[in-house]
């Protein structure tokens, strides 16, 4: 059984500069084709301040830190028993090149199913931009077999 006292444990804030080149690389790697993901001039013609970040781009922020999987290590489980079971994003504002994003994360909940043989951990990340506006909420669900 997982240590439920870890619920609400917070993790260090991560700061992330959203750069044009990185956005283009991510858009290319996920197969985007619309020039608003690649071309700043076209993005501006469409009324955006710069190149747009695709919907799943903020997954990159977690990997800016030295130990992106620290919360999994804290669970004291074998890495091979952990699966990323689900991912939800809630969007409040678009993210563009030039934004500075702050990520604040915590273990939000833990629960079990099938009489404890499957345990679930919900990990929440809140992304705020340079104006202090909450732009995206992320909820990742891990299952431990």
């Amino acid at each position: 059984m997982l240590d439920r006292s870890l619920i609400n444990k917070n993790y260090p804030t991560v700061k992330f500069d959203v750069e044009k080149q990185r956005l283009k690389f991510f858009a290319k790697a996920t197969g985007q084709t619309d020039p608003i993901y690649f071309d700043e001039i076209i993005a501006r013609e469409k009324g955006f301040p710069s190149i747009l970040a695709p919907p799943t781009f903020l997954t990159t922020v977690a990997y800016e830190q030295n130990n992106p999987n620290q919360y999994i290590y804290d669970l004291s489980v074998n890495m091979k028993d952990v699966l990323h079971a689900g991912q939800i994003y809630k969007y409040h504002s678009l993210v563009f090149a030039g934004d500075i994003i702050t990520m604040d994360s915590k273990i939000k909940d833990m629960y079990d199913k099938k009489n404890g043989s499957l345990e679930f951990v919900e990990f929440e990340s809140l992304y705020t931009n340079q104006n202090g506006k909450l732009v995206v909420e992320s909820l990742s669900t891990l299952v431990i077999r």
Partner: peptide, 12 residues
């Protein structure tokens, strides 16, 4: 348009 997306979730 991407700003129409309020929520997007998946199960793997």
């Amino acid at each position: 348009n991407q700003n129409q997306i309020l929520e997007y979730g998946v199960q793997f």
